[in-house]
Design a protein around this nucleic acid. Structure first.
Length: 527
RNA sequence: GCCGCGUUGGUCAAUCGGCUAAGACGCCUCCCUUUCACGGAGGAAUGACGGGUUCGACUCCCGUACGCGGUACCA
C-alpha cells in the first residue's frame, strides 16, 4: 500500500496564503569552528528574504552535541554577522521573545515532545548500547549490507520498546537505563514536499532509518531540535544547505506527528559552494591549498592553536564579500552584478536561486573587492589603510593619505595594496630601477634634468598640468622626445615603473620634495 | 551499494519552446598611456550523451553517463 503523505496539502497552502503570517527565518549554526563562506551565504539568503518580506531573522545556536563544543565559536559567528552587516534581530547576543536561543539552554524542552511521539506511537525507546549497535553493523556488513541502518527490519531484532514487553520496558525505564528515543518510520509510504528551489521532491520512507530523536544524555539530535525550535520560534521559511535534503522526510514527518503540520515552514535547500578545481564541497583545506580564505574572518582554533585566515583580514570589504556571495547562486536576470545590500534586499527572490552548486572563483572575488575599493570614498579608504601606515611607523596627515588613496585605488584589489602602488608618496625610494634608464641614458638627458630643476625653482604654479607643459616644452627645445624623459623622471620620483601619471606624482609630492628626488635620482642613475 | 539532488564556455551565468545561445570574471590581440591600472575596440571559448514529444528543443518527458550530497546517540 502506498500511503501518500504530501506536504503541504493544497488546502494548507491556501490557508497559509490567507493567513499572511509574518515571515520569520533563522540561521542555525553549530558552534564548532570558523564560519565558512557557504555559511555566510546561507545567512545572507536568510537575511535578504526576511528583509525583503519585512520579516524577522533569528540566530539560533545549535549546540546539542556537547562533545563538539568549541569555546569562542559562538562569539565568532556573531562577530562575522556583524562585520557583514547581516546581524540577526533575535539571538543569544540580544535576546528576543522566543529565547533562549541556545539549544543547550532549551534542553528541558525537548524531552516532552519526544515522549509525546512515543505515546502516539510514532517513536519508541531504544536501549541498545553502542556496542550492540556496533555488533549489529558488523553483522550486517558481513552479510553484504553496505551501510547498515536502524530501519524497519533491523528494529525488530533490537533492544527497544517495540520488541520488549511493556512491563520490561517500564522496568528498564524505572531503573534509569540509558536509552534513546527513535522515530518510527512508517512503512511503504512516500513523503513528498515542495522545495522553494527544487520544486517537488519525494522520498520513500522505507529507505530512511529510525533516526535518534533524543540522545541518551537527554539532548535532542538536530532532527528533533530543528523541528521543535522552528515550531516554537514560529519560523515560516527554512533555508539550509543541500546536504540536509536527505533528512528532510524525517523533519516533515515530525511536523505531522507532533500535530503541527499547519505551521510547518516552507523549505528551501540551497546549492553548495564547490571547490574551484575538481569537484566537491569547498573546504578550509582547499583554501589553504590554493591560497585563499574560506572563513569569513580569522579563526584561531583554541584546541590546535592553528590560525586560519579570513576574508576580513585578507583585506576584503564586507560589502564586496557579501555582494560576491550573493552572486554565487543567485542573480536578478538582468546581468547586473554589483548590488548594494539595500538593492539585494529589494531584488532578492528565492525563485531565482540556482539548483546547481557553484565553484568558487577567487579571481572573481578579487574583482568584486576591486570594484568596491574604487567605489569607496577616499577618506574612508584612508581610514582603512591607516593601520598599514602605522605599522610602518608613519603618521601622515589623513587628508594626504586620502589623496593618495584616490590616486592609486584603481590599481588595488585590496586596501593594503595602496602601499604597493603608492608607498613612494609616504617615503623616499630606497632603490631605483636604474636598469630601465641607464642603457639609454645620455649626457643630453642629464643636462635636461639639470636645466629643468633650475627652472622649476621659479615655477609658481606647481600643478601637474603646468608641469607637464613646461616639461614638454623644454624637451622640445632640447631636441629630446618628451616620452624618453618621462620614464627616467618617474624612476627618480618613485624608484620604479609604477604609480599614477608622473606629473601628478610631482604635484602631489610638492616642489621641494620633487626637486630633492630629482637630485637623488640623478645621483643613483650615474652611480 | 542504496537513496536524493544536480549537469549551458576554464569559472559565475541569461534563456522559462523560435538561438545567428546574453552578460561578467579570467585569458589573448589592439588602442589609450613610453610605468602599472582604469577605460575603449576586438578575439578564442558553451547546451554531457541517447531516445522521444513538437512545425520547431538548451528549454518538456524518459533513459544513460558523470558529479555531488546523504546513508551516526554530528550538525
Amino acid at each position: 500500500m502506498i500511503l501518500d503523505v504530501s506536504f503541504p496539502s493544497p488546502k494548507l497552502l491556501f490557508l497559509r496564503r490567507m493567513s499572511h503570517k509574518k515571515v520569520r527565518v533563522r540561521f542555525a549554526p553549530s558552534p564548532t569552528g570558523g564560519l565558512h563562506l557557504g555559511g555566510v551565504r546561507t545567512v545572507l539568503f536568510n537575511y535578504l528574504f526576511a528583509r525583503h518580506h519585512g520579516g524577522e531573522f533569528v540566530l539560533r545556536i545549535e549546540d546539542t552535541d556537547q562533545t563538539r563544543y568549541v569555546p569562542g565559536a559562538e562569539e565568532y559567528i556573531i562577530e562575522c554577522l556583524r562585520w557583514c552587516g547581516l546581524d540577526a534581530d533575535e539571538g543569544p547576543h540580544k535576546g528576543g521573545p522566543y529565547g533562549p536561543y541556545r539549544q543547550s539552554e532549551r534542553k528541558a524542552l525537548y524531552r516532552q515532545y519526544a515522549e509525546q511521539l512515543v505515546a502516539s506511537g510514532h517513536a519508541y525507546y531504544a536501549f541498545d548500547t553502542p556496542e550492540e549497535l556496533e555488533a549489529m553493523r558488523e553483522l550486517e556488513k558481513s552479510r553484504g549490507n553496505h551501510s547498515p541502518q536502524y530501519n524497519q527490519r533491523i528494529r525488530r531484532t533490537m533492544h527497544n520498546s517495540l520488541t520488549l514487553e511493556a512491563a520490561e520496558v517500564k522496568a528498564l525505564l524505572d531503573k534509569g537505563t540509558p536509552h534513546v528515543i527513535r522515530i518510527k518510520m512508517p512503512e511503504h509510504a512516500e513523503v513528498r514536499f515542495t522545495d522553494m528551489i527544487r520544486g517537488e521532491v519525494s522520498f520513500q520512507t522505507d529507505i530512511v532509518d529510525d533516526k535518534v530523536l533524543l540522545k541518551a544524555d537527554g539532548m535532542p539530535t538536530y532532527h528533533l531540535a530543528v523541528v521543535v525550535d522552528d515550531y516554537l520560534m514560529k519560523i515560516t521559511h527554512a533555508f539550509r544547505g543541500e546536504e540536509w535534503l536527505p533528512s528532510a522526510p524525517v523533519h516533515i514527518l515530525l511536523w505531522k506527528y507532533l500535530g503541527w503540520e499547519s505551521s510547518m515552514p516552507e523549505w528551501a535547500h540551497l546549492p553548495l559552494i564547490l571547490k574551484p578545481d575538481g569537484n566537491g564541497k569547498l573546504s578550509k583545506r582547499d583554501g589553504d591549498r590554493l591560497g585563499f580564505p574560506v572563513y569569513a574572518m580569522n579563526w584561531l582554533d583554541p584546541k590546535t592553536n592553528e590560525l586560519t585566515q579570513g576574508f576580513r583580514e585578507r583585506g576584503f570589504l564586507p560589502e564586496a564579500f557579501v555582494n560576491m556571495l550573493a552572486m554565487l547562486g543567485w542573480n536578478d536576470g538582468s546581468g547586473q552584478e554589483l548590488f548594494s545590500l539595500d538593492e539585494l534586499v529589494q531584488k532578492f527572490s528565492i525563485e531565482r536561486v540556482h539548483k546547481g552548486g557553484a565553484k568558487f572563483d577567487y579571481e572573481k572575488a578579487k574583482w568584486f573587492n576591486h570594484q568596491y575599493i574604487v567605489k569607496k570614498d577616499d577618506a574612508a579608504l584612508a581610514t582603512l589603510f591607516q593601520p598599514v601606515l602605522e605599522e610602518k611607523g608613519l603618521h601622515p596627515d589623513p587628508a594626504y593619505t586620502a589623496r593618495i588613496a584616490g590616486l592609486v585605488k584603481e590599481r588595488c584589489h585590496f586596501v593594503n595594496e595602496i602601499w604597493d602602488h603608492g608607498f613612494f608618496f609616504f617615503t623616499r625610494p630606497e632603490k631605483y630601477d636604474t636598469d630601465a634608464v641607464k642603457p639609454k641614458w645620455t649626457a643630453e638627458k642629464q643636462a635636461f634634468f639639470e636645466t629643468w630643476t633650475a627652472a622649476l625653482n621659479d615655477l609658481e604654479d606647481f600643478t601637474f598640468h603646468t608641469l607637464e607643459e613646461h616639461f614638454k616644452q623644454l624637451a622640445v627645445e632640447k631636441n629630446i622626445k618628451p616620452g624618453e624623459l618621462q620614464l627616467p623622471f618617474r624612476i627618480m620620483l618613485c624608484g620604479g615603473k609604477f604609480g599614477p601619471p608622473v606629473f601628478v606624482i610631482a604635484e602631489t609630492l610638492g616642489k621641494k620634495e620633487t626637486l630633492e628626488r630629482i637630485k637623488l635620482g640623478l645621483a643613483a642613475i650615474q652611480a
